[in-house]
């Protein structure tokens, strides 16, 4: 059963006319976490003072969310959608953990 589930998870859907709950949730909430961590990290990476760079993060925070959600929802397979959320999120969290 798990095998079947995994197989379905890794194969692309036949039609793109239905987005599906999994993609919607991954896109909205995954995109939120991903963009929030990404923008926080961005403030550390911009070579300005933190308080100046934070302005950029705040201003483009919501835009990053919208972009990340679109990007995740457009993944080829469900697995890819999950990876698009998980991989950058893990990298960003690790980087933030190191910088903190």
């Amino acid at each position: 059963m798990i095998k079947n589930f995994l197989k379905e998870f890794c194969t692309p859907e036949l039609s793109g006319k239905k987005i599906g709950l999994f993609r919607v949730l991954t896109a909205i909430f995954g995109g939120l976490i991903l963009s929030y961590l990404g923008m926080t990290l961005l403030a550390f990476l911009i070579p300005w003072e933190i308080k100046e760079a934070a302005v950029i993060s705040i201003m483009f925070n919501t835009f990053a969310w919208a972009s990340a959600a679109t990007w995740i929802a457009l993944a080829y397979t469900k697995l890819e959608a999950l990876l698009r959320f998980l991989v950058p999120t893990l990298i960003f969290s690790f980087a933030l953990f190191m910088l903190y």
């Binding site: 929030y36 926080t40 550390f44 933190i50 100046e52 934070a54 705040i58 201003m59 925070n61 903190y100």
Partner: peptide, 29 residues
Amino acid sequence: AVMNIGLVSSGVMAKILSKGEANSIDGVV
């Protein structure tokens, strides 16, 4: 979006950026 969501949700970001010192984004920017 910045005014209605970005600022409301910026508490955690402020906390991380200031290494635990600031509670709201005002304290940072």
